[in-house]
Amino acid sequence: MGGHLARAAVLSDPRPFVSLTLLSSGPAEAGRLRQSELKLLLQALETMTMAQVWEALGERRHIHASAEEAEHLRSRWLRTHVSHLRVVGRQLLTEPDRTPELAAVESLPKHVVYGDAEDTWTLWQLEDMAARLRAHRTLLSGAGHSPNLQLPAETAAGLIAFWSRLPRA
């Protein structure tokens, strides 16, 4: 969702930005598998508490997380307001592909960062979006949808490598 928000901000007015990095953020609505999960989640949020939904999700959401990371995710989940999840869920089911508009912002260097185990969008969707944006790509081996949590050093290295290539203001 953060990538979609960053994209909207750039499309609103690119002048305040030096570059744009999309971290595990696809071109449009979530992929088919994630859409099915989002629809189930939205239904569950109507009748279950956040703790009940977390338990129902089970280990599925922590496939690439250590015990410490899983606890961090659980704690963050339980602090999230249900209305936030409803809005994000609906948005990820309907977001249009604005890649052509974003590609037209030629003055802004773009960077697409994603893991090879990404599960919200397919690797094909992310690679295609990066190509259409003429963006620098950072593919993180072994990372899923949260490479900054799963591979923080590698994610930081990819970001630094991209930012280091930008012209100094």
Rank of each mutant, 00 (worst) to 15 (best):
G3A: 07
H4P: 00
A6V: 08
A8H: 09
A9C: 11
S12E: 15
S12R: 15
T21E: 01
T21P: 05
L23V: 12
L23F: 11
L33P: 01
R34Y: 03
L38E: 10
L38F: 08
L40A: 12
A44E: 09
E46P: 08
M48I: 00
V53P: 00
E59A: 14
H62M: 03
I63G: 00
I63M: 07
H64I: 00
H64C: 01
L73F: 13
W77P: 03
R79A: 12
T80E: 02
V82M: 01
L85P: 00
G89Q: 02
R90S: 10
R90T: 10
L92V: 05
L93I: 08
P96D: 12
P96I: 10
D97N: 15
T99E: 08
E101N: 11
L102E: 06
A104R: 15
V105Y: 04
E106H: 13
S107W: 00
L108I: 02
D116Y: 07
D116W: 04
W121N: 11
T122V: 07
A130Y: 10
A130W: 10
R134D: 14
A135F: 07
R137I: 11
T138P: 05
L139M: 11
H145G: 09
N148V: 00
Q150L: 03
A153Y: 06
E154D: 12
G158V: 05
S164F: 03
R168S: 12
R168N: 09
A169H: 14
